[in-house]
Computed example of a mutant assay.
Amino acid sequence: MVAQAGKDLLLKLDRAGDGTFVSVAGLRSRRFALNANPIDITDAESTGRWRELLAGASTRHASLSGSGLFRDKASAEEVRAAFFAGALCNWQIILPGFGTLEGPFHLSALEYSGDYRSEVTFEISLESAGALTFTQLS
């Protein structure tokens, strides 16, 4: 993956649950992580007591965190409603030069902050909550 502008990583929400994704915020900073936790099969007879892992098996999850400004009042209300409902919503993450990741995420944190001389900003954290699909950019 060649260098890309950080502003090109987009976060979109399927508001109506119909597969139509809309950008909800202008994220100024963002972090996206894919993780695969290995399955440990070590037992008393493992050679030299070295840890053994089960090949081809792991528990995968994705997480995204970021901070910025909501796109508009409707976006702020939609994200806030999803948080208070504890709803699992379909989100889409567009990774420039890589592809699109899409699927259900749990909105695990929503924080607001502001300085008396500037706008109110927010921080958001999402954790995957099911199978995700990946579409490679062509």
Rank of each mutant, 00 (worst) to 15 (best):
P104F: 05
R15L: 10
G56W: 01
A25G: 07
L107M: 08
A74M: 07
S128Q: 09
G66A: 06
N90R: 10
C89P: 08
T42F: 01
A129K: 02
T100I: 08
S108M: 08
T47W: 04
E127M: 12
S65K: 09
A82Y: 07
L54R: 09
F21G: 06
E123M: 09
L13F: 07
A5W: 13
D40K: 02
G103E: 05
L137G: 13
S138N: 13
L137K: 14
Q4F: 15
A81N: 14
A33C: 02
D18K: 11
W50F: 15
S113I: 00
G130K: 08
G97V: 03
T20A: 15
V22C: 05
Q4C: 11
A74W: 05
L9Y: 04
G114L: 03
G19M: 04
T121Y: 04
E78H: 12
F98C: 08
H106T: 12
L95S: 00
L53A: 09
F21H: 07
T47C: 00
R80I: 14
Q4L: 10
E111F: 07
E52I: 01
G26T: 14
A87G: 09
L107V: 04
R49I: 10
I39D: 06
S46W: 02
S46M: 01
R71V: 13
V24C: 10
G68N: 11
S65E: 13
F134H: 09
A82I: 04
G68S: 12
L95C: 04
N35K: 11
